[in-house]
Nucleic acid binder design. Structure first.
Length: 342
DNA sequence: AAGGCGGGGAT
DNA sequence: ATCCCAGCCTT
């Protein structure tokens, strides 16, 4: 693989991103801040650049250094993470910051192996940080690279079955500018070798690409069978007291939306059944909310009522104007919106 | 090795 | 409606 061609392309077409040091600045000796690179990489796990930008700017404004993030309450981190999804990342982010401060004097490890021992940092993220920050010559293999390499080699099996073979092939191509190469390959996958379109005419890997030679590059990567998404149904209960404050509670510490804020709901099952209201009140049906998770589709009927707050003691009451500061996942923001709030 | 785990942008 | 994103962790 012609890594020199990839780097030459990157020198002219690198995306400008808030956490990135441009190839020109990098050549001039400027080094990325491992804290900012780490934070961006965690946020970017299974998440698009467009979705991450605002969160990254907010986090770095609130917590400019790892020490600041480590000292923050977990609740604050979850609140700021709300809406970004995959909330285990936020818990691991906080735990990782504390581990770096506690066990590494606030300095991130400078090798992929050292980084991968930290919470929330796996094979991809450890390699990415080590390459980008320290130019460790390690293969950085993410979803973009899966696609680029599957096409380059016209891989006839799903990527998951050939992951280590791809890693080995990529490892042989990693040049001295390991960080720029990693970012170049990801930019290539994001802008040239995109999922539904391959702009082969302007691709620096044009010459060696087997899928291009075959003539139908978007045939790759070969996808495994997709499991169909089941539907779950239930009811959500939005309760306000006489002052208009809304009843909220915390979700369990493990599982879906762990530790995030919610309004009470029924169990979610194949059938919703009749609503079992938590209190006697004049309940009004406020419509239905549909929310799609990775592994199921959820349909919640939304009910609202003004209630006397007796017997509700596990949660708390929040003023409608204060809902923006709660750790509410998007699902429950939809529920509140259906009830005329948020 | 397989499945749980969010949400949104692009098509 | 479908795909898939700078994946990790648990079982």
């Amino acid at each position: 693989m012609d890594s020199a061609a990839v780097l030459a392309w990157y020198d002219h077409h690198a995306r400008e991103l808030p956490w990135r040091v441009s190839p020109a600045d990098r050549r001039a000796g400027l080094r990325p801040d491992p804290y900012r690179v780490w934070l961006s990489e965690i946020m970017l796990q299974q998440t698009t650049v467009a979705a991450v930008k605002a969160y990254f700017l907010r986090f770095t404004a609130l917590w400019p250094r790892v020490h600041d993030l480590a000292a923050a309450p977990l609740d604050s981190v979850l609140r700021e993470w709300a809406g970004l999804g995959y909330y285990a990342r936020a818990r691991n982010l906080h735990a990782c910051a504390q581990a770096v401060v506690r066990d590494h004097a606030g300095i991130f490890p400078d090798t992929a192996a050292g980084l991968q021992a930290l919470p929330g940092i796996g094979a991809y993220t450890s390699a990415a940080i080590a390459a980008i920050c320290f130019d460790e010559r390690v293969a950085v293999l993410d979803g973009n690279l899966d696609r680029v390499l599957a096409r380059y080699y016209a891989l006839k099996v799903p990527v998951r079955e050939a992951k280590e073979a791809l890693r080995g092939a990529l490892q042989l191509a990693v040049p001295e500018r390991a960080g720029d190469f990693a970012q170049a390959m990801m930019d290539l996958g994001a802008t040239i070798c995109a999922p539904r379109a391959a702009m082969c005419l302007v691709c620096p890997l044009h010459d060696g690409c087997e899928a291009r030679r075959e003539g139908e590059p978007t045939r790759y990567p070969i996808k495994p069978q997709k499991a169909e998404r089941p539907v779950r149904r239930g009811h959500a209960f939005v309760m306000q007291d006489a002052a208009g404050d809304v009843y909220l509670q915390s979700r369990p510490a493990k599982g879906l939306l762990a530790g995030m804020t919610e309004v009470p709901t029924s169990d979610w099952g194949e059938l919703s059944g009749d609503p079992a209201f938590p209190l006697v009140a004049d309940w009004r049906h406020r419509g239905q909310v549909v929310h799609v998770f990775t592994h199921f589709r959820l349909e919640l009927d939304v009910w609202s009522a003004v209630v006397a707050p007796d017997g509700l003691e596990t949660g708390w009451w929040a003023a409608p104007e204060a809902l923006g500061g709660e750790a509410l996942p998007t699902l429950f923001r939809k529920v509140l919106a259906a009830a005329g709030l948020d």
